[in-house]
Every structure is written in structure tokens, then in C-alpha cells.
């Protein structure tokens, strides 16, 4: 029988600890497919964040280091500057990247570090139990915004892709959604592009992925997916915000 679908080689057989419906599984898969596609698993080092995906080293067949909370872009910088032949990617959640690690992501982007950052935006702190994230939408109830996020006291949800795209140092910035197959295929293309940018030494590439967190949203998977479409995408529009060609830099 002809095999038409398989697990990417860059992923191992470990059973993922993520909650039912969690978006990390799909996001991991897209990264793994990119590693397979470019055949770079053997020269790739991943940087895991603090958050649910801290355990990503259990699932990938590439070398992975754990970074302190928010510092993944700094760790990735140290790696890439010291061994420019390695492919280095950071995989970060919204608390990690957009809150405690805001300085690190902005400056790594601004320096144009030749690394790839995959940013998982599910509008909530997952690992710690559903607290308010910098990306939590206005009115969204979390365990630390029990009356709904209020801009008077909590400020507004941060749009990271829009923040990073204008920086001269970034070469590829996109926001994609993992809510339905057509969008997942677009996201896949984006993740591939981001790695391709690094392989071609073009510079800093960033892909934001809107994902669901049914557990902390208190919804089932279908309701969660609908929330991405009804609430998240209107505030976090999808698209490629910046794409520079290799030639721009030569």
C-alpha cells in the first residue's frame, strides 16, 4: 500500500503531554516538516521557552536547549554568533516572548540576528494555569483578569508581528493561524519561508501562529477554533507583514 501521510522524521515517537486540542502539536509538526524539507535536522538547534512547550525537547530529533523565561532570542543569538553554520530557531509562547522577553525579542530582531523565531499566540499563559497574557484580548476572562481584560488597568493586547515588522533588522515577519486546513497550509508555507531565510543567511525571520488553548479558555476544541476566527483574527490580522529578498542584502 502506498503511504500518503507520515509523521515528519524530525519528530520522535514520544507521546506529547499537551492537552487535548492544544495547538502546539500542529505547530511542532510544521517546524518538523520544515526541518525535513530542508534536511537540516542534523544541524539545527532549537531553543525551548519557559511555558507549555518547554518540554519540546522530548519530541524533536534535533538538539534543543532550554532558555530562561523570555531569553530564548538571547540564547539563540549566542549560539548563532558562535556557530553560524548551525540553524537556530527559538520557539516561544506569548508570555515568554511578548511579556518577560520583550527586550530580547525586539533587540534580536533589531540586530537582524540570522535566526528563526516561531511565536505561539494563544492569548493566555498555559503552563501556569490560564493567567492573562500580553496578547489576552480585551474583555477576555482569565484567572488574573477575572472580570475581563480592561484596557484601563491592563493595557491593550500586543500585536507582535506589527511591532517587529517595521524594524530594519527583520527580513520576514508573518502572522498565520492554525484554525483550519487552508490556514495551516499557509502557516506551513510561512514556517518554511522563515527557515529558508535563515538557510540563505538573509536574516531575522519571525512567524506568529494563532493557536487554541481549549483547557484555559474553558471551551471545547470546536468552540476554540471558532474563537480564533471570530475574536482573534479580527484583532490579530493574518498575513505576511514583511518579506525581504536575499538580494536586498547582498
Amino acid at each position: 500500500m502506498k503511504q500518503v501521510f507520515a509523521k515528519p522524521k524530525a519528530l520522535n515517537d514520544e507521546i506529547m503531554h499537551y492537552c487535548p486540542g492544544c495547538g502546539h502539536g500542529v505547530a511542532h509538526r510544521l517546524v518538523a516538516e520544515a526541518l525535513d524539507h530542508y534536511d537540516i535536522t542534523g544541524r539545527t538547534v532549537g531553543v525551548a521557552p519557559v511555558g507549555c512547550s518547554v518540554l519540546m525537547y522530548d519530541y524533536f530529533n534535533c538538539d534543543i536547549i532550554e532558555a530562561p523565561h523570555g531569553r530564548a532570542p538571547a540564547v539563540a543569538t549566542g549560539m548563532k554568533r558562535s556557530r553560524s553554520d548551525l540553524i537556530v530557531f527559538a520557539y516561544q509562547g506569548d508570555g515568554d516572548l511578548a511579556s518577560i522577553g520583550l527586550a530580547e525579542i525586539v533587540h534580536a530582531a533589531n540586530r537582524g540576528e540570522n535566526i528563526t523565531v516561531i511565536f505561539i499566540n494563544n492569548t493566555v499563559y498555559g503552563m501556569t494555569g490560564g493567567q492573562m497574557a500580553p496578547t489576552t484580548l480585551l474583555g477576555q476572562k482569565t484567572t488574573t483578569s477575572p472580570y475581563g481584560r480592561n484596557f484601563n488597568t491592563d493595557g491593550y493586547p500586543i500585536r507582535m508581528a506589527e511591532m517587529l515588522a517595521p524594524l530594519e533588522g527583520t527580513t520576514y515577519v508573518a502572522r498565520m493561524s492554525l484554525d483550519k486546513p487552508v490556514n495551516i497550509l499557509k502557516a506551513r508555507k510561512s514556517v518554511f519561508k522563515a527557515f529558508e531565510m535563515q538557510i540563505n543567511n538573509v536574516g531575522f525571520s519571525f512567524v506568529e501562529l494563532l493557536t487554541i488553548c481549549p483547557t484555559n479558555w474553558g471551551m471545547d476544541s470546536m468552540e476554540s477554533i471558532k474563537r480564533i476566527q471570530d475574536e482573534m483574527i479580527p484583532y490579530f490580522p493574518l498575513g505576511v507583514f514583511k518579506e525581504k529578498e536575499t538580494e536586498d542584502y547582498i
Binding site: 532558555a67 530562561p68 531569553r71 556557530r83
Partner: peptide, 26 residues
């Protein structure tokens, strides 16, 4: 070699952590 003026000491120690992890003296 490489010199990076980091955005903070938080970043610089973590850049050292990354460099160390790939095996160089930093």
C-alpha cells in the same frame, strides 16, 4: 571572533549560555 553589545545583562549572560552550549569559550 564576535562581540555583541547586548541589550541588557539579562541578555548578555544568556548569549553566553547559548555560546557555551554550542561548545565555544565565551
Amino acid at each position: 571572533g564576535e562581540f555583541v553589545q547586548a541589550e541588557s545583562e539579562l541578555a548578555s549572560i544568556n548569549m553566553v549560555l547559548g555560546a557555551s552550549a554550542v561548545g565555544v569559550r565565551s
